[in-house]
Structures are given as C-alpha cells and as structure tokens.
Simulated scan of single mutants.
Amino acid sequence: MNYAEFSKRLETISGITVTPFNKATKAVDWEGVKANVEFLINKGVKVIVPCGNTSEFYSLTLAEAKEEISRVVEYTAGRASVIAGIGYAVDTAIELGNHAKQAGADGVMIHMPIHPYITNTGAVEYFKNVIQSINLPSIIYFKDPHLSDNLLSELAPLEQLVAVKYAVNDLPRFAATVQSIDPAHHITWICGTAEKWAPFFYQAGAKGFTSGMVNVYPEKSFELLHALEAGQTDQVWKIWKEILPFENLRAKYNSGNNVVVVKEAMERLGLRAGVTREPVGELDMQDKQAVAELIEAWGLKLQTT
C-alpha cells in the first residue's frame, strides 16, 4: 500500500451516504442504500463514506453498521473508494475496522470518541490503537474543539494516517495546524463541515470537503469543488450563495436538522431517503416548505409532496 498516493484520492468530495429507514418499521431499506450508492457513483462521486454522521451512524446497531459497510462495498464494486465510518469504544472501532477490511473497504474514517470524559493523551491513544490495529488507510474525524490540535501532530507520523477530516470551524486554528505539520507525512486535509465552510478551509489548506448535500444536488457540489480547484474566486462565491440557504437550514437547532433536511430534499426529488431514526424527529411544516422552496430555486423538479 502506497499511503502517500492513497491520500491524493481524498482531494475531492467525500460523499457521506444516507441510510434510508422504512417509515413504518424504521428498518434499513437496503434497496434504498443500493439506489443511493448508484446515484452518487453515476454523478461522479469518487469517495463514498458509509456510516458517517449523515448516515446516522449512531442510530445503527453494530450488526447494521457492518452490513451497511459490506453492502456499500459490494454496490460500489470498485468504481469509487469506500471509506467506512467506525467508532465507539476502542475494541468496537477495531472490530468494525477489521470487518471493513475483510469486506474490501479501501479505508476507514474514525469518529471522534463519544465519551463524557476525554483527555488529549487518551484521544491520542484511542486513535493510535485503532489505526495500528486495522492497518488500512485511516482518516481521523476531528471535531472536538476542547482537544488540542497537538494530538494531530503526535499522530501525523503514523504511515496509515492519510487524512484529517477537520470539523472545528476555527480557521486560524486550522491554518496554524496545517502549517505546523510536515507535508512529508502525506496528510490530506479535508473540510469536515461541508460546502458552507469549504471555501474558507480551502484557502487555509484543505484539499477536499465532505458533503451530505451531494445526495441531493451533486452537480452543485462539484461546481463548487471545481471552482475552488481552478481558483475562480467570483464563481466560488456565486455558487456558495446558492448553497448557503440549504446548509443554514441543516444547521438549525444546533445542527439537529442536519440529516432530516437532506432526507426531506431527497424524498421530494423522488430519491430513496426514508425517515430518520430517533433522536432525530420529522421536520416541522415551516422547514418542509423551506426545503421545497430551495429545491425550486435551484431549478430542480419536485417529484413528491
């Protein structure tokens, strides 16, 4: 494995998959998972991430998470890189990561530990143990602003660490971290807070961004990426303004709307999103109307009401 070469694959949009749940039973709609993977691949997405936060990872059982990883690898069939989201306790994350490896995933994205008590040294050990136990290209999902970026400096020499999905919206902090880590460590920096923040992170050193909106309107996400890559500043901000209302709607209620807005938009476009699982509830009528108006403003055709 040439980890430096692999890191270059991530200089693009990381499409976080949606997990469709049946409205009546809340069971996973596996045919919907397949349809959504096909949609992303047909629209040109080259990095697909099952079991991310937009996938409602923390609403899945361990068995469901494993099955989602296996099925996404199967459905992708080598046409894109599959980066499997893994997390929870160290042993659970390793179990999920080794399952992903056996299933044929190309790499793993390690979620920030969900724990009421976390220290910098403990977080370093968490990520190091997981990365070294799986031996696949690994991405760290860094989103806890209370942790020091020094932990990234400590982990950077690990050969398997190919990228950091940085999701703390502190641009001076991010830029300083990027500048402090030797480029020889072949880390690709990814904006972890999607299209809304991508132009800012790109100027500070990011080379790609994650996206949930790509499940709805991938053409617009790629317009932004290509404008960033080409340095077309005026075009970047024009596209950004078109995207901003959608991302702001997702950010409502302390980002409680993050997934359900994507699912509402997908359903209105005739895609397979289904409902969300608890603790995310249905959108209120005002927000549903806002989604419909945004879709119409983009010039997309509403399929459902």
Score class of each variant (00 low, 15 high):
235 Q>K: 15
247 E>A: 13
255 S>N: 09
78 G>Y: 09
197 W>T: 14
64 E>M: 03
36 N>M: 05
137 P>A: 06
58 Y>V: 02
48 I>E: 02
215 N>V: 12
140 I>L: 11
168 V>E: 07
49 V>T: 13
282 E>T: 14
201 F>R: 07
136 L>A: 06
145 P>V: 09
238 K>G: 00
114 I>Y: 06
230 A>Q: 14
12 T>D: 15
302 L>E: 05
224 L>F: 08
230 A>W: 07
187 I>D: 09
53 N>W: 05
161 L>K: 12
18 V>A: 09
115 H>L: 10
266 M>L: 13
259 V>Y: 04
169 N>S: 14
125 E>L: 12
24 A>W: 01
106 D>T: 01
104 G>C: 03
18 V>L: 12
83 I>A: 13
55 S>I: 02
17 T>N: 00
26 K>W: 01
32 G>T: 02
84 A>N: 08
161 L>G: 10
103 A>S: 15
127 F>Y: 15
86 I>P: 06
101 K>W: 03
187 I>L: 14
32 G>E: 01
253 Y>H: 07
99 H>G: 02
261 V>M: 08
268 R>C: 13
39 F>N: 09
7 S>P: 10
130 V>G: 04
204 A>K: 04
264 E>K: 11
30 W>Y: 14
266 M>H: 11
130 V>N: 06
53 N>V: 11
58 Y>W: 12
163 A>W: 05
261 V>N: 07
28 V>P: 05
111 H>D: 01
128 K>A: 08
64 E>R: 03
134 I>E: 07
264 E>V: 06
187 I>K: 08
214 V>G: 05
180 S>E: 06
294 L>P: 00
45 V>W: 02
60 L>N: 01
6 F>K: 10
10 L>N: 11
267 E>S: 15
153 S>H: 12
285 M>E: 15
56 E>R: 04
261 V>I: 14
45 V>R: 01
161 L>S: 11
61 T>V: 05
121 T>W: 00
199 P>D: 08
301 K>G: 01
103 A>W: 03
189 W>D: 03
155 L>K: 11
57 F>M: 12
8 K>R: 14
143 K>Y: 01
140 I>F: 10
195 E>C: 05
234 D>P: 06
79 R>I: 06
110 I>D: 11
253 Y>I: 00
214 V>M: 04
106 D>I: 03
226 H>E: 14
16 I>K: 06
188 T>I: 06
126 Y>P: 03
27 A>H: 13
274 G>S: 13
5 E>P: 00
269 L>K: 11
265 A>G: 14
226 H>I: 00
168 V>K: 08
14 S>L: 15
305 T>Y: 12
158 L>N: 06
89 A>L: 13
176 A>F: 11
